[in-house]
Design a protein around this nucleic acid. Sequence first.
DNA 1: TTGAAAGCGCTAACAT
DNA 2: ATGTTAGCGCTTTCAA
Lengths: 342, 342
Amino acid sequence: MPVTIKDVARLAGVSNATVSRVLTDKPHVRPEIRQRVQEAIQALGYRPSRVARSLRVKRTRLIGLIISDIQNPFFTALVRAVEDVAQQAGYAVILCNSDEDIHKERLYIELMQAEQVSGVLITPTRETGSPARLLLEAGVPVVAVDRQMRDLQVDTVLVDNVEGAFQAVSHLIGAGHTRIGAILAPRVVTTGSQRREGYVQALKAHGLPVDPALIRTGQPRKAVGDRLAGELLDLPERPTALFCGNNLLALGALNAIRERGWRIPEDVALGAFDNLDWAALIDPPLTVVEQPVYELGQTAAELLMKRIQDASRPFQKVELKTRLRVRQSSQRPLSIDREDRR
Amino acid sequence: MPVTIKDVARLAGVSNATVSRVLTDKPHVRPEIRQRVQEAIQALGYRPSRVARSLRVKRTRLIGLIISDIQNPFFTALVRAVEDVAQQAGYAVILCNSDEDIHKERLYIELMQAEQVSGVLITPTRETGSPARLLLEAGVPVVAVDRQMRDLQVDTVLVDNVEGAFQAVSHLIGAGHTRIGAILAPRVVTTGSQRREGYVQALKAHGLPVDPALIRTGQPRKAVGDRLAGELLDLPERPTALFCGNNLLALGALNAIRERGWRIPEDVALGAFDNLDWAALIDPPLTVVEQPVYELGQTAAELLMKRIQDASRPFQKVELKTRLRVRQSSQRPLSIDREDRR
DNA sequence: TTGAAAGCGCTAACAT
DNA sequence: ATGTTAGCGCTTTCAA
């Protein structure tokens, strides 16, 4: 029923080989024949089956994109960038949501293999032991974005998380805080461990003690941020400032603070990763570490395209810089002054 | 190089037909043989080529999802729901971002066809003349989500936009506003035209005049919302309340209001579509029309699955209800009281 | 410059 | 219950 290359060949009065040559822009076709074939294609509304072509040439025009949370606007912006680059290069993207779940990650990686995509972009849920190894073994190019995979040889594009966290926490310290809570992703994901590292370094650099009780980790989701912030705020010796590892954790923390009827930054100051549209519009505007998220996705996608072209090129790790945006949520807290009244 | 069905057959000492039977869970295979085949599959780490299978059975385990703005959290939530349903049913989703651009929409629809997806979910950029017609002609099931296509026979899942807008605007009227501006998507998309309809109906129902100068439309993006809100606020006889057709337009309006140093709701009240996490956290909390967005995507995806099963089932249009969430941004404006002082 | 024909990996009809 | 074989739609030798 659907029109195939044979139908076109018949109508144009040539062999399918010739049609194929026209289709793939091969030389050695008389312009006049080429013309006739193209007309036949038009007339029949023919679209070559990518499936058949893929089977033949053993590669598809698909790339896989496995992100860990589609509801996180940070990843969404990443998707946007990848989509743009892929489209430009004539690729479509299969999007999968691993949901921070290593089993789903594996499931999708196997799918990518079965689907024979040309390459895969992934924000791995774990620093080590990612099933992405299967892809590499099968010769499928992989690029890690936003997060690293320490035990795999892949191109990597991420942000200088340590420095970003260091700046944010140093800023809070500069505002007079000495007890700063941290709400982070688990250590098994690089954004968790590296931002923790930046947090710790900042404390140490300013001669402050590192209190493990002030560091909480969990899946980067709003509900988790809410819970973890609550735990910190309800501590007997509670922190006067909170540093949140990403936008969803911040959203949750915001909620926890609001629920307790506390004010920012008077009762508790706040700093977080990710500069989303709403960050500047909330009350008070949120101090954030801005990530060049579009560039992150773009760079990663471009690297993947290059590796698809040339599998033997040297691997590289690109580290983009963040930018601290100071707003009111981190201003010098009144509680410092209050200490005089004790 | 990659292991094929033949390799498995050889190792298991059977024919490829038998391996295929095991693969597709067909009957008529001795348990003992089935066992042996499965072991061979394990041993070789074999994954059947979906490409080859697709070519053979003339359908893929892929569905296409064409949304109009990946950066809009509303659509993102939709993606999430679709992904969940698809995965459950053993499908992967190819995600495409039409960017509210009919040409990109067409491009992706042609891609879907070439990729031979089993079905397509789409949030069409136009009410009529969508290239989705090509898919239907090729026998590919299509379901419209969030927006309608008036000239195509497809299953449709959307929200009662007229009622949602009606409630929001009626609420603003109830708060004492008589000049209410509207910032909406263009009329060619149903969410634009239907929400406009609800706005107009609300004004008329309360005996208020409909002033075309107070209705502005544009692409649903933050920058556009900013500009359109600015135009309305700078009017000689400016509105005392703004109704925004979606979350991005609201974000822009918020910005415009803030830039002018005005307060909400004292200087201008605000109501909008979409209840995102930040809506309750901004200053002041935003009154919104909440859409059951996950259910929207879920229902649409389920409908698509059903139609893939049975192309001849009757078409249906599902209309989900919205819910008005009244918060402070729409409270009775002080400016009403101020009129006494004029 | 063009065509004939093989074959990519799989499924399914048919044979045994 | 299992194997043999044709063929899905395309690309790509190879020959003409």
